[in-house]
Nucleic acid binder design. Sequence first.
DNA 1: TACATAATGTAATAATATAACATTACATTA
DNA 2: TAATGTAATGTTATATTATTACATTATGTA
Lengths: 160, 160
Amino acid sequence: MKKLVDEKALQQPHDHQLCMTQTLLSAEKICMDQGARLTAIRRRILELVCSSHKAIGAYELLDLFREEDTKAKPVTIYRALDFLIDVGLVHKIESLNAFIGCLQAEKKHQSVILICDDCKNAYELDAAPVYQSVFEMGKKIQFTPRSLTIELHGLCASCA
Amino acid sequence: MKKLVDEKALQQPHDHQLCMTQTLLSAEKICMDQGARLTAIRRRILELVCSSHKAIGAYELLDLFREEDTKAKPVTIYRALDFLIDVGLVHKIESLNAFIGCLQAEKKHQSVILICDDCKNAYELDAAPVYQSVFEMGKKIQFTPRSLTIELHGLCASCA
DNA sequence: TACATAATGTAATAATATAACATTACATTA
DNA sequence: TAATGTAATGTTATATTATTACATTATGTA
């Protein structure tokens, strides 16, 4: 299995090997707790999504996954992604039709995603107060909130 | 040319014929001011987008547009939409890959879009303070903002 | 073991969007 | 007003993203 390290992945330089190890451990725990099955395919797709902090497309994932499983089809990837999104391990970036791993899946969180249009790294920041404000706005017109997407595009510190 | 009226389009019942007339007048003015050309195609696509307050997909627009111009192609629609988005007359809803007309294109605005998952009506609310909060969050990690997408899904008052 | 359910395999296709290049319309000014 | 440059549109093809439908296999539980 290919070694997946990207030391410059985040603005805060970090040991990405460790980052991934923790994410995967966390994933095991989350699935265990929920009685969800982190199968080999799902686990591998999660690894691939988390192999960098850049948003990655489903077909890019497919290409990577096919290096190990040549008969994989698009639906293989989409099914794994659906599962991972359901359990909160992966987020879809709607404005890119691409995906990122969630680094704080264990905690309940309400996040804003910041996407660097240059390097494509995505940063997830917790923004509970922002969520509250938006929900309040909705309340004024009797809108019942279900899910909120907040995506900020721009340039990260390294790329500005 | 078909008459385009949808009296129940918005939560606040309104005279949609008037709503459209005003939007189109506003569009003329905006394009005039910017030296942009609101051609027949662009104008018609805008009318179609604004014919209801429901998010509409590019290929739905294509079908409608083809009732008058049978030789229209997808790119016809996408080009018109690109133009209309550029001048601020139309917004793309990223989480739906669909489009809505902007009702406040003349004013500078920073909006949150509320999308009813039942009736598909979309409401655009001005949310400058929310934008500020998100920009402030970005600032803390030296993120230079470029564009912000905020989309709240849920149920509108009529559908809850 | 038998069963029910969840996960995966496989093929086909739907839905969304863009690239590339030719042609036409429009605005400017020589 | 003819020439010219730019913007808009026409046309064909194709890229990208995502889902449906149905068959098969694996897994957990009675």
